[in-house]
């Protein structure tokens, strides 16, 4: 177990180095930050001077070495646009994004799992087919359109929910939360629905597919043969055995939801990391972009490790990486 964790950690470090390298390479293609930092009337001389000041004229290996040196200490420098330490900006925005992602994930699980179970147990029922089709329509529209439609319906027409922002937030130490105020909770509804909609469909279909498979397996037949009730069979045995792949996917999806939050945050002006990143892209704010990429990668690597560990704990049959036969 310990050896497994150590090996896994070493691999994670390698992954992070690769991510840093790719993130760094990307900067060559995002545009010249100097243009958006200086007034239009700045002379060519001024532009050159600023480029030198930012260290953009140094040889690329030197720039990369400095970048890694800083990144290891969690230092990504000062944002070109906001003039604040990037680490502060990220820490400020992290709670907003994480609350959004977890709310969306919760929404997806609460909707997706029951719908999946239902459609698996009533395979050919009318409601099942309807659910399947509705869930598909939900993901056939680009999320930015869904978001605008949600705003149109629930903010403009019905006037029930706010169309932008996080509402009132409360500071708990460095963590700012919108979960403790009414306006904060109301503000969370539309964005998490928009972000979670795709996952609802994915989880529902996954649960359904796995359920159907498990229901055919011998051990379920035995359970039935033992005279257990349908209820016990379905929920005690079948559902529990479908949860492995669901855990995997849900875990993996958390990472991609953080990435997809970029779009949700843009539509709802949700002051999280995705919005920070999109602003950074349009201003070629390289320190912010690099920090975001490295952080998303880090979160992902951690989630991945946890998923692997869960595999290990939940299902010892798998003995991850231990079998060299």
């Amino acid at each position: 177990m310990l050896a497994f964790i150590v090996r896994r950690l070493l691999q994670a470090v390698l992954v992070m180095l690769a991510v840093a390298l790719i993130a760094f390479a990307m900067f060559r293609f995002v545009g010249d930050p100097v243009n958006s930092m200086l007034p239009e009337i700045a002379t060519t001389e001024d532009r050159q001077a600023l480029r030198a000041q930012l260290g953009l004229d140094e040889p690329i290996p030197t720039q990369f070495a400095k970048f890694i040196g800083g990144a290891v200490q969690g230092e990504f420098g000062i944002s070109y646009r906001n003039k604040r330490p990037v680490s502060d900006l990220i820490v400020e925005r992290l709670p907003a994004t994480l609350e959004l992602v977890f709310a969306a994930a919760l929404f997806a699980l609460l909707m997706g799992v029951p719908m999946g179970v239902y459609t698996a147990l009533n395979r050919h029922g009318f409601v099942s087919n309807l659910l399947q089709i509705i869930s598909l329509i939900g993901i056939s529209v680009p999320t930015f359109v869904t978001g605008i439609l949600l705003i149109l319906i629930f903010s403009v027409w019905l006037n029930w929910l706010p169309s932008f922002g996080r509402g009132e937030v409360v500071q708990l130490g460095w963590w700012s939360t919108g979960l403790l105020t009414i306006s904060g909770l109301k503000s969370l509804v539309l964005p998490s629905v928009m972000l979670g909609l795709f996952q609802v469909t994915l989880i529902m279909r996954l649960v359904r597919a796995e359920m159907l498979e498990v229901l055919r397996t011998d051990f379920i037949r035995f359970a039935r043969a033992r005279g257990l009730t349908d209820r016990a069979v379905h929920f005690g045995h079948a559902l529990r055995n479908t949860l492995m792949p669901v855990i995997t996917i849900a875990g993996l999806q958390l990472g991609s939801m953080i990435a997809f939050a970029i779009i949700t945050e843009t539509v709802f002006q949700w002051p999280g990391m995705g919005l920070l990143f999109i602003q950074a892209v349009s201003f070629a704010d390289i320190p912010v972009m690099s920090a975001y990429l490295v952080l998303v990668a880090l979160i992902f690597v951690v989630i991945n490790m946890i998923v692997d560990l869960l595999y290990f704990v939940v299902d010892p049959r798998l003995s991850v990486g231990g079998d060299r036969a």
Partner: peptide, 18 residues
């Protein structure tokens, strides 16, 4: 003052009275 990058959201917020 709130920044709202998305045109549609900004207009929606005006129309909805926010």
């Amino acid at each position: 003052f709130s920044p709202i990058a998305s045109d549609a959201t900004r207009i929606a917020a005006l129309l909805s009275g926010e």
